[in-house]
């Protein structure tokens, strides 16, 4: 199954001490975890506005990566421009998803909404396989591939990009939701839809905006991991689910929770794969997910919901 690997080639681990190996796993874990956190944030944005779990979130990630590849190969754009174009493109896909599939279904049951976003994800994946085929593509690293030594372990420059982008995204989202009028209106729509309507907030516009924003965040995730792992039409399935796990672990809807959840998940996976067995790596995320759902469904950082009937 798919999984990014940011560490040095396997044989190099043999030259490290145990402590250095652990450090290396931690670095890998934080990098991968940042990606999970980014994807989880995309889930959060839509969930906050609509209480819908968007099963097509992983497809936003895939599209972000593949559109960047096309921007570079077909339009011969440098990475930053191709990336911006891809982010805009995926936002438009997000808007289209809302208009075509979510909006026609007012007051639908959760089951219907789950099915429809799953249908959308299958559809997008199918279209992507028609456009880009089934082979993997590589985005060149943003700033070289010379590993940076770090206490006996190494950090790939791209890892710093991943962590940096995740940090910037989470900080700007915080600013957006906390400081700007639009951001506050989006939160208000989610918490008090009726009150929001009374004060003149256009709820359907806010939902649209959340899909666009979520598409942009998802695309960013797909772009920054491009150089670390290949981008491919079906990469979104696992990544999307892992992002959701990150959101649940941290507490869905909680902005710092998802960062915490993503990085915890990344580290546990990386340590598990390195020290126990790489075959079970993907199972780890879901075992944690189940334990969380069974014992603390509100997440580590989330508050429990009120029990008024």
């Amino acid at each position: 199954m798919w999984g990014p690997d940011t560490g040095p080639p396997r044989h190099e681990y043999n030259n490290m001490t145990f402590e250095q190996q652990i450090l290396q796993y931690l670095i890998t874990g934080v990098t991968v975890g940042s990606i999970y956190a980014l994807i989880g944030m995309g889930f959060n944005i839509i969930y906050n506005a609509t209480e819908i779990i968007n099963f097509a979130q992983g497809e936003f990630v895939m599209l972000g990566g593949l559109l960047t590849v096309s921007g570079m190969q077909l339009l011969h754009l440098p990475v930053p421009f191709a990336a911006i174009l891809a982010i805009i493109g995926v936002s438009i896909v997000g808007i289209a998803l809302d208009r075509a599939a979510i909006r026609p279904l007012k007051d639908a049951s959760p089951i219907t909404l789950i099915i429809i976003t799953i249908g959308a994800s299958i559809f997008i994946r199918g279209v992507a396989s028609l456009i880009w085929g089934k082979e993997p593509y590589l985005i060149p690293a943003f700033s070289g591939e010379e590993p940076i030594p770090f206490f006996g372990a190494v950090i790939q420059p791209q890892s710093l990009w991943v962590m940096g982008v995740a940090l910037i995204v989470v900080l700007s989202l915080r600013q957006f939701f906390g400081r700007t009028l639009t951001g506050k209106a989006m939160l208000a729509t989610a918490v008090q839809p009726r009150a929001a309507k009374l004060v003149g907030i256009d709820a359907s516009y806010m939902v649209l905006l959340s899909f666009a924003l979520s598409g942009a965040v998802g695309a960013a995730a797909g772009i920054v991991i491009g150089p670390i792992s290949m981008v491919q039409y079906d990469m979104g399935v696992m990544l999307g689910l892992k992002g959701f796990c990150a959101a649940i672990i941290g507490g869905i809807g909680h902005p710092w929770g998802v960062v915490f959840g993503g990085i915890t998940l990344g580290i546990v996976e990386s340590l598990g794969a390195g020290l126990i067995s790489s075959g079970y790596k993907d199972a780890i995320a879901f075992v944690i997910l189940l334990l969380m759902l069974f014992f603390r469904p509100q997440g580590v950082l989330g508050k429990s919901k009120g029990d008024r009937v």
Partner: peptide, 16 residues
């Protein structure tokens, strides 16, 4: 080649 996308599309259309 269109099989997957048609499958997804049918799902969406039936649901709507």
């Amino acid at each position: 080649h269109y099989e997957t996308s048609v499958f997804g599309l049918i799902l969406i259309l039936v649901m709507i």
